[in-house]
Nucleic acid binder design. Structure first.
Lengths: 245, 245
DNA sequence: CGTGGCGTTGATTAACCTCAAATGTGGTGG
DNA sequence: CCACCACATTTGAGGTTAATCAACGCCACG
């Protein structure tokens, strides 16, 4: 499992692992002091639903540890993942109390929360927060558009390769260095969750993993650990032009 | 053709058709006066490329008249439309000089432009603009996620019906009333552009239009004008749960 | 009257889905 | 440590959907 040591007690903002990447990134120490007072933490276990599509959400939050997924579902059950929240990513929308998608913890998750109303005031009074939030929202929009290209036009094999590229880049983001040569990727998602992300069935996902393995593009170590011997080869399989992050 | 009467001369902000929906929506008269000084207009003919993916874009802009499409393309030519700009929609990203997608005028387009650098200062000094821009960006993000559900999980028939629903809603937006009962939709897009939007081929788009017509869901009057006798029936075909705008 | 852009329709194929069964894996309690 | 269970994953066979390849019709325009 993807157990993480999650502190139950409050973190001091100065010690927060996402201090320089979350919506508070550009705040000075005075501003941080204010946020420190207003924030509170909530933790969710792997598999737990954080918010239901269409329901009111009384807080906004940044992910501190763990991974969450955003999904939309049609009446007959067809499900599409529409986003993924990783540490420093933001959930919620100032000025709107309901969410348009279901939010589920993929691993254990710790969130740094603010009650809605006070946070809305905060966005008005702290330009640094508003600015960073706009920037992060635009990043998400770009990522969503990249994903539209994948969903609309890529083959199953390209989709799997693209997912691995994304995940490798995300891991690299945390450790500064760019993925190159031999790369490891941890899959936090089940085959079904990957299928929901890629607009495929879980069987097709499984088959494409097998095919990529047979062709030497990846090695599988258990079901959740992938080794990529040649990252450029993977980029090629993903039809990735290297434009986006 | 989709000819529109586009004024060549400058518009006074007070007379601007998008005055209350664009990024200037919440500005007071002092702020508007400032914008009025800084803004300039550019017009583009139908079919003209406004910006190329990866190239620098030296301005940001709001669409005043007309429709533009945002597309991304893979090396082998597969193309996906990742967004559509209608009057009051915003193009560009403060703090970044390149665009990640190609922007093309679908009809003749008039844009209200600001040079990049001055605009970035403007976002810092006018909270009303920053706020409205954040709101519009979040709207786009929601729309992109709705589209991800369509691309990943809907059938060709549902995709066409969904497109018609979106277009009908957009037209209704301008005239306040909600689509209901008998509804007309003008298609500004060619079959090919629709295919690129929906992740289909143009042949499939054509076939599904024929099928929806045969089944009485729509009437076709020429290639570009659609009549929907029963909007609820269309919503049903689109598998639309009515959550989004 | 030809020409080019756009759209429709038909036949065939390929990619992916569906249904079904077998196998692997990690966690639990005896 | 092992037996067992629940669930995730793999694999196979066959069906469906939409893509591909190809031909033709409809205009608008020179």
């Amino acid at each position: 499992m993807n157990q993480q040591v999650i502190p139950n007690l409050s973190i001091h903002c100065g010690d927060c692992p996402i201090r320089h990447r979350a919506i508070c990134a550009r705040c000075d120490s005075d501003e941080i002091a204010k946020l420190d007072q207003m924030k509170y933490y909530r933790s969710f276990e792997a598999g737990q639903t954080i918010a239901w599509a269409g329901d009111p959400l009384e807080f906004v939050a940044s992910v501190v540890f763990g991974t969450a997924k955003l999904t939309r579902t049609l009446e007959d059950g067809r499900t599409q993942m529409v986003g993924m929240l990783l540490p420093s990513d933001f959930l919620g929308r100032p000025g709107r109390s309901t969410v348009g998608y279901t939010v589920t913890a993929v691993t254990d998750v710790l969130m740094c929360c603010f009650r809605r109303k006070p946070f809305e005031g905060l966005v008005q009074t702290m330009p640094h927060v508003a600015e960073t939030l706009l920037d992060k929202t635009m990043d998400e929009l770009e990522a969503a558009r990249e994903w539209m290209l994948l969903l609309g036009r890529k083959t199953a094999r390209e989709k799997i390769a693209s997912l691995l590229v994304i995940l490798a880049r995300r891991e690299a983001e945390l450790s500064v260095k760019k993925p190159e040569g031999r790369v490891h990727v941890d899959l936090v998602l089940t085959r079904e969750a990957m299928a929901d992300y890629l607009g495929l069935t879980l069987e097709t996902v499984s088959r494409q993993f097998s095919a990529l393995k047979k062709d030497g593009v990846i090695d599988l170590d258990g079901n959740r650990h992938v080794t990529v011997p040649d990252f450029d080869r993977l980029l090629d399989e993903a039809q990735d032009d290297g434009v986006m992050g």
